[in-house]
Amino acid sequence: MSDSTAPVLEVTDLRTSFFTDAGEVRAVDGLTFDLLPGETLGIVGESGSGKSVAALSLLRLIPMPPGAIKGGAAIFRADPRQPAACQDLLQVPDPQLRRIRGNDVAMIFQEPMTSLNPVMKIGAQITEALQLHKGLDEDEARARAAALLDRVGIPDAVACLDGYPHQLSGGMRQRVMIAMALCCDPQILLADEPTTALDVTIQAQVLELLARLTKETGTAVILITHNLGVVARYADRVLVMYAGRAVEVGPATAIYRRPHHAYTLGLLDSVPRLDAPAQRIVPIEGVPPDPAHLPPGCAFAPRCRFATDICRELRPALQDVDNGHQAACHHAGEVLAAASR
């Protein structure tokens, strides 16, 4: 049987909580999504929406305690042509997970200075992964690492191997992170705000590089960001998160042109556009809810101009609104009508 479109990752009802003095904080509260081989899925949301915690949970990288993955599944298929051969990343034993992390599923973090080891040479940080996951010997690993640095556009790759992270600029460090993340040809790359700490001209360099390399290797990317422009340019599909849940997911053009969730529409209206003259931007009133005290119905209801009684009582489920496009909103039709005006 051949089903080449089987998702490389299927996340179902992921729940991650942190137990604090203020009580249980439900950072991720029932997140469900698929990731297809080779696609780029953009996850957008504001701080505290749970997007980073979701990514960290997939690799079980959240600190436990105070954190705990309370439920759900993350089915990973290393080979999409064999859909039956799969593992649940949330259940596999630690030794097996260590073989997957950095090898099949790699991650790039926001701040490259804190994710590189400052007292270890750059070469050693890359060859470590190659020796561990690919069984290369030291010379092979070093040659491979130099080739990788060259590929990510580091000017003098061999010299860079013997340098330390602080000797590089922010953009160059993030290139090193990309080289490290892609060194084992992962199936999935989790990129958590990979360019937020960088200037726009450098951000453009790094994102173009990331898009080109992952296309070449066929790596599926989960691109986590708060920047709606970045997602518009690079994501095939977009998932909008609010208060720990997916509120809308669909093809990128559909999300931007035909939003069906009031939060998505609110976000789009609140960002000024570079290509439009002086404009009135419409903010979303209020502030995001405290994740320790989520309202009973739709978490967005207190800030929503479409909200009615049902929104405050019944939490909406993700429902199909169009081909491959789902939204969790009781008033999806009205939102679309407002967006089309």
């Binding site: 951000q203 518009a232 340019r233 931007y256 042109r257 789009l268 960002v271 570079l274």
Partner: peptide, 8 residues
Amino acid sequence: AVPIPDPA
């Protein structure tokens, strides 16, 4: 270098 929030 600034991406515009509109895929089209």
